[in-house]
Amino acid sequence: MRETSHQAFARADGGQWAVPVITGLGGPAFHATLLAGLRDLVGADHVTDLSYDQAGGLGQCSAASLLNQSMIEWTTNLYVNGSFYRRDPNYQMLCGMAGQRRRSEALIVEPLCPEGIPDAEYRRLLFERPGFASKISVIGARDDGVCYINLYFSRRHGAGVEDLLRGCAPLLIALSRRHRELRCPAEPACAEAESWASGFSLREIQVAGLLRRGHTAKQVGRELGLSPATVVTYKNRIFKKCQVASLKEFLLKTPSPSAGGERGLAC
């Protein structure tokens, strides 16, 4: 098999940890494989991967844990749907970076420990309760938005870890962006999409179609390679666009799928 540009860069840059990750680009196990490589490199136990649009709005998010997957999904869901992302100590910086125009990608590696968080509820629910001793964020910003990768450590990360992550930050951000592009291509909603889906993105149409077929958030996530928290985010956007407050209202307002009637989902 011909070596990809990411593989060549990983080898040239000493990023051997990334070589197996590249084969999982676009697949449901991408973040688990990424975390396994980062565990060997810097000792991280958990990872969350989020995106922010140009207006500072939260986009896709995924999470993986080597210790407790249910815990990291619960934490991520709380962060996203409990609006704790607006209380993130880095939130103002993320919004500022998202709104800037730049010629090249801006990269930041930002460490954080519980004692550095003044918001007591945020610290208790998103650090102390899940057992995070420290976090290092890798942030990549360009004109189309911000990539926000958080590595969580069950023990305080050691000396030199931040420097290691600064060295591999360009590759780490590039892999995250490429995976997101493969999982959710930047395509407009299909012309054949039903009238209720007017103004929906391709991914919103896909999520809505599965919800209409009776899938739970976890089932939708498995089908599309998304975390349950990301599915809930899409579901909330769908409900807002349809002007409904619940799944029952959504199902009543939109027509039931008919045989061959979901052609827009296959685009």
Rank of each mutant, 00 (worst) to 15 (best):
R87M: 12
G15W: 03
R180K: 13
K253D: 03
Q7Y: 09
R39C: 02
Q16I: 13
A32P: 00
N150H: 05
S198K: 15
E121G: 04
P185I: 11
L165T: 04
R87K: 14
D163A: 12
G99R: 13
L171Q: 15
R11D: 03
A98T: 03
R102M: 13
A18E: 08
D163S: 07
S137G: 03
K253R: 15
A10D: 02
Q100P: 03
S83L: 12
C168A: 06
W196Q: 13
L211C: 07
E194H: 15
R142V: 00
V109L: 07
A12E: 12
L78D: 04
F239Q: 13
P20L: 09
S195R: 15
K218F: 08
Y91A: 07
A245T: 09
I117L: 05
F200P: 00
L171T: 14
S65E: 01
R124T: 10
A193V: 14
Y234M: 07
R102K: 13
H6S: 08
V80L: 07
P185V: 11
Y85S: 00
E181T: 09
G225N: 06
V161L: 00
A32D: 15
T254D: 01
F84E: 10
L38E: 06
E181H: 14
W74A: 04
A10R: 00
K135R: 05
Q206D: 10
R129L: 12
V47Q: 03
R213G: 08
A32E: 15
P185R: 05
L126P: 08
I238W: 05
R166K: 14
A189N: 15
G167E: 08
W196S: 15
D88H: 10
A98E: 02
N81D: 10
L107D: 00
S246R: 07
H46E: 13
Q69D: 07
L251T: 10
P118L: 08
H157Y: 07
I136C: 03
V21Y: 05
I139W: 06
S198I: 08
A18M: 08
Y85F: 15
K135I: 00
I22T: 04
R39Q: 11
A193H: 11
L58A: 05
S134C: 06
P170C: 01
F250E: 03
A32M: 12
D88V: 02
L251N: 09
V21Q: 05
A169Q: 04
R142E: 08
Y152T: 01
K135E: 06
I108W: 08
K240V: 00
Y122E: 04
P255E: 09
V42C: 14
V42Y: 02
G15A: 11
R86I: 03
S201K: 14
T23R: 14
R180M: 14
P170T: 02
E262D: 14
V146F: 00
Y85G: 02
P114V: 02
C267R: 13
G260A: 12
D88N: 11
L226W: 04
V47G: 04
I149F: 01
G221Y: 05
I205P: 01
V21C: 14
